[in-house]
Design a protein around this nucleic acid. Structure first.
Lengths: 229, 229
DNA sequence: GCGGCTGGTTACAAATTGATACAGAGACGA
DNA sequence: TCGTCTCTGTATCAATTTGTAACCAGCCGC
């Protein structure tokens, strides 16, 4: 099978443009293009900017002392990443595709800078972030690897899918190890889960990174605990 | 063994008092006493207040459609709980001990209310909450049940322990099911992990809810991946 | 005191996941 | 075009966790 019939994952048409909300406060938002594999910031860095993802996908991770890695979240277009705590970034952040971002200077979000628009903007983003992290807990807390994987795909279906004939297709920019570290599994188990979902005709794999969702209802059912069926 | 030698878990001496930060903004903080087992709010409730825990412990949970429950976090004295998203609470919140709380009216934290002190206060709390949730991910992502359990106890040691002779003791207000739903395990596995930690002389169980930490260094080592030793 | 109820612990079997090894596909540069 | 490298998929085996059930202790009401 080939991916030739699918649109490219790079949203090349999505011009780099400021959202209305990005114009409202200063000093001056800075557009940046990040190449694939390049870091936006590191854990512990002084937090000079927060970033809105315009196009592309970033990966937010925390490292353990023993070398294990936890993927905290993925940043998709529209997301704001890099909210600091105590003026420092709390995660690593790396572009897993080429990205266009808008960098907003972030002068002490809890400090004396009294730009109400900026405050409201950051607060809004923080509260949404909290809810998103809580949602991620429901993912990690699921029992079976198959349920976690299905729930992850339901998430991607919402954020990152494109129509393809009567179905929807997901071009996944993250590799199996990223998914495993996001779900608390090993890459092998993720691979097994994809194979199982393909066997159940819930999806097809056009290539390793291209999921065609054949039966979204079944996928949701598995994600919500009906894996034994 | 008996718990007679330990101080009571209810901090009866800790008078209900406003923290300095609680005085700075209005309209008027309201002191409330919550009885054990009573809810502070439910998921989806209109978020009228945020609550600072003065004494006692609350449990924040999200329910799944299939009836499974995820414990998102526990609220200990000093914590602020109830930050809304889109003006609604995003979790259930229940007092697992009797609690004293200070309720702050929370008029549209992202809205037009322009109380800078309140804004800063909420922003600070939100950023700390994000970091705490990220820390929880590292807990859930750990491989072994023994590591998760040890890491959980290290957390409690920091937030909820009292001196007891040369050691420290933890009076745990949550039951095994709460811990299991927090760590993504079953209650049986949590119980087995406690037994294993007792067998390694890392801790003693004065009763089921009273942990005496005998070897905090070993506990930390297990929590950080040295479970096989 | 008795019986039921709840929560915790333990034992054993079953299921799931992790570890290890290896083969195949694709990307990349020489 | 050929190696080499990385990533993915698969198989096998070992380790861990879960499910199930039983048992125990404490608590409460009768």
């Amino acid at each position: 099978m080939h991916a030739a019939y699918l649109k490219p994952v790079e949203p090349s048409e999505a011009a780099i443009r400021l959202r209305p909300a990005d114009r409202r406060f200063g000093p001056e938002p800075i557009r940046r293009r990040i190449r694939q594999g390049q870091p936006l910031f590191h854990e512990g860095d002084h937090a000079e900017y927060v970033y809105r993802i315009v196009s592309g996908v970033v990966r937010l991770t925390r490292m353990q002392q023993d070398g294990r890695r936890q993927v905290i979240s993925f940043g998709f277009p529209g997301d704001l990443v890099g909210l600091p705590d105590d003026d420092r970034h709390t995660t690593e952040c790396e572009a897993i595709t080429a990205c266009d971002v808008v960098a907003h200077r972030c002068p002490h979000p809890t400090g004396s800078d009294r730009n109400p628009e900026m405050q409201r903007f950051l607060m809004d983003a923080a509260l949404q972030e909290i809810r998103a992290l809580q949602d991620h807990f429901l993912l990690l807390g699921r029992r079976l690897a198959l349920e976690k994987t299905a729930a992850f795909l339901v998430l991607l279906l919402d954020r990152l899918s494109e129509p393809l004939g009567k179905c929807r297709a997901i071009r996944m920019p993250m590799n199996r190890t990223d998914i495993a570290d996001y779900l608390g599994l090993t890459p092998e188990t993720v691979s097994r889960s994809f194979t199982e979902l393909r066997g159940r005709r819930a999806l097809a794999l056009d290539d390793a990174n291209t999921v065609i969702v054949l039966d979204p209802a079944q996928l949701s059912a598995i994600a919500e605990g009906g894996a034994e069926a």
